[in-house]
Simulated scan of single mutants.
Amino acid sequence: MLMLDYLFVYGTLLKNFDSYMSKFLEKNAEFVSEGYFYGKLYEVSWYPGAVLSTNETEKVYGHIFKIKNEAKTFKILDDYEGIVETAEHPNEYTRVLIDAFLSNNTTIKSWVYVYNFKTTNLKRILSGNYLKQ
């Protein structure tokens, strides 16, 4: 059975990040592990955006949570990330299922919000870690 209740976060939803939605996530999910996925991290504005990569040297670091009450919690998180099914314009982020790596290198299927626009004019966060840029 495929578990679809894990979420990888790398920006304003990180554990201990000082934001309302980070606190919401901590109340509605269980912290599993630090981890990473193959991708590139960019500074979009006061928040980051990540895109997927197939290059194993390009990593985005963050936290993996096990979501409680997936339907309710993902609805609120999708709203926060600006994902609207009836959007007239493309959404800034999309929620996709990826292979994430836990700190012990175990692979886990996890949702992640990836940036959905061009990154051409964005500053890359080379460390892959939003809190250590």
Rank of each mutant, 00 (worst) to 15 (best):
M1Y: 13
M1A: 13
L2G: 13
L2V: 14
M3E: 09
L4I: 04
D5F: 04
Y6H: 13
Y6V: 05
Y6D: 06
L7P: 06
L7S: 08
L7R: 05
F8W: 06
V9R: 03
G11N: 00
G11A: 11
G11E: 00
K15Q: 01
N16I: 00
N16T: 14
F17P: 05
S19V: 04
Y20I: 12
M21I: 00
M21V: 00
S22I: 08
K23N: 14
F24M: 02
F24V: 05
F24H: 12
L25M: 03
E26P: 11
E26A: 14
E26M: 15
K27M: 10
K27H: 06
N28Q: 01
N28A: 07
A29K: 08
E30S: 07
E30A: 00
V32C: 08
S33R: 05
E34Q: 07
G35I: 12
Y36K: 13
Y38G: 10
Y38E: 10
Y42A: 10
E43D: 14
E43I: 07
E43A: 15
E43G: 07
V44P: 09
S45A: 15
Y47D: 03
Y47L: 08
P48Y: 14
G49C: 14
G49T: 14
A50P: 02
A50E: 07
V51P: 03
L52E: 02
T54K: 08
T54Q: 07
E56G: 01
T57A: 01
K59N: 09
K59Y: 04
Y61M: 07
G62W: 06
H63P: 00
F65T: 11
F65R: 04
K66F: 02
K66Y: 00
I67E: 10
I67G: 05
K68W: 12
E70F: 01
E70S: 13
E70H: 01
E70M: 06
K72M: 11
K72I: 01
F74A: 09
F74N: 09
L77V: 02
D78L: 03
D78K: 11
D78M: 02
E81I: 11
E81H: 08
G82S: 06
G82W: 00
G82A: 12
I83L: 15
E85F: 00
E88N: 13
H89I: 04
P90G: 07
N91K: 06
N91A: 14
N91C: 13
E92C: 03
E92T: 08
R95E: 13
V96P: 03
V96M: 11
V96W: 02
L97I: 14
I98Y: 02
I98K: 00
I98G: 03
D99S: 13
F101Y: 15
F101P: 05
L102A: 03
S103A: 15
N104S: 12
T106K: 15
T106E: 15
T106H: 10
T107Y: 07
K109L: 15
W111V: 05
Y113A: 06
V114N: 11
V114S: 13
V114T: 15
Y115F: 15
F117E: 07
K118E: 14
K118Q: 11
K118C: 11
K118Y: 15
T120F: 14
T120M: 02
T120V: 14
L122A: 01
K123Q: 06
K123F: 04
I125L: 03
I125K: 02
L126Q: 02
L126G: 02
L126K: 05
S127Y: 03
G128P: 10
G128C: 04
G128V: 08
Y130A: 01
Y130M: 00
L131E: 08
L131H: 03
